[in-house]
Computed example of a mutant assay.
Amino acid sequence: MNIQPLYTAPQHAEQVIDWQWQAFGDGLPREFFASIVAHSQIPGALPLTFIATEGQRLLGTVGLWRCDLITRQDLCPWLAALYVDESARGKGLAGQLQRHVQAYAAEAGHRDLHLWSACRDFYERYGWHYIGDALEYPHKTVHLYRYMLADSAGGVTE
């Protein structure tokens, strides 16, 4: 299994766009996600999309974005759009993708990462700390999390 920036394997871009749109679209056009993926093709810039592959098979994706919640633009950067293909779930890939983004962000000099989720209890297992609720436009309450990169032991906490 290999985790790499999507710009090193652009043949997977259309599948990543479809996954993001189907998993996180909720009324947004596919073009919105296509734009994010297109803008993540610049090495060293945000947003950045990573993919997990095994041979030529795409297993999952995750992003490192400047902002993922319009109501909390004071927080930066964000782990975003974590998606693992159904056939690859239950094998620890979500944790590996998170750790990859955490290591990349730490190396880039960031002190912490943020994410939002509609569910509870998943990210806490990976060392994320719940910091409160926020509003996802236009009216959806979501849970905010912070991961302190200086504290990164990197393991599951259960």
Rank of each mutant, 00 (worst) to 15 (best):
V84R: 09
A81V: 03
Q96P: 00
T71F: 05
V84P: 06
W65V: 04
T71Q: 13
A81W: 05
A88Q: 07
G55S: 12
I51F: 00
L59F: 00
A45D: 12
F50C: 07
W78V: 11
P77R: 08
I42D: 14
S87W: 00
L48W: 02
R57L: 09
I42L: 14
Q56L: 06
T49I: 15
A94D: 10
G92S: 11
G95E: 04
P77M: 10
G60R: 02
L82C: 05
G63Y: 00
P43C: 11
E86C: 10
A45G: 06
D74L: 10
R66W: 04
K91C: 13
L75V: 12
P47L: 04
L64P: 09
P77S: 10
L59S: 03
V84A: 12
L59H: 01
R89H: 12
T53S: 10
L58T: 04
R57G: 00
D74E: 15
L59Q: 13
P43T: 00
V62W: 06
R66G: 08
T53Y: 01
P77C: 09
P43G: 05
A80G: 15
E86K: 14
Q73G: 13
A52L: 02
W78Y: 13
S87L: 08
L75N: 09
F50Y: 15
A52I: 02
G63W: 00
W78M: 10
P43I: 02
I70V: 15
I42N: 12
Q96T: 03
L69M: 06
T61Y: 01
L97A: 04
R57P: 01
E54A: 15
C76I: 07
L75Q: 11
R72T: 03
L93W: 02
W65Y: 15
G92Y: 03
I70P: 06
Q56S: 11
D85N: 12
F50V: 01
D85C: 04
L82P: 08
G44S: 11
D68R: 00
L59T: 01
P43Q: 05
R72F: 04
W65N: 13
G44L: 08
G90R: 08
A80L: 10
A94E: 08
G63C: 15
Q96K: 15
W65F: 15
Q73L: 05
E54F: 00
E86M: 08
Y83K: 03
E86H: 12
I70A: 14
G55I: 10
W78Q: 07
Q56Y: 01
E86V: 12
E54S: 13
Q73P: 06
T49R: 10
V84K: 08
F50D: 04
W78C: 05
L79D: 08
Q96I: 02
E86N: 14
E86Y: 00
L82N: 06
L79F: 13
L48R: 14
R66Y: 08
T49S: 14
V62N: 09
Q56E: 14
A94Y: 04
D68M: 01
D74K: 07
L82E: 03
G55H: 08
G63M: 13
S87K: 12
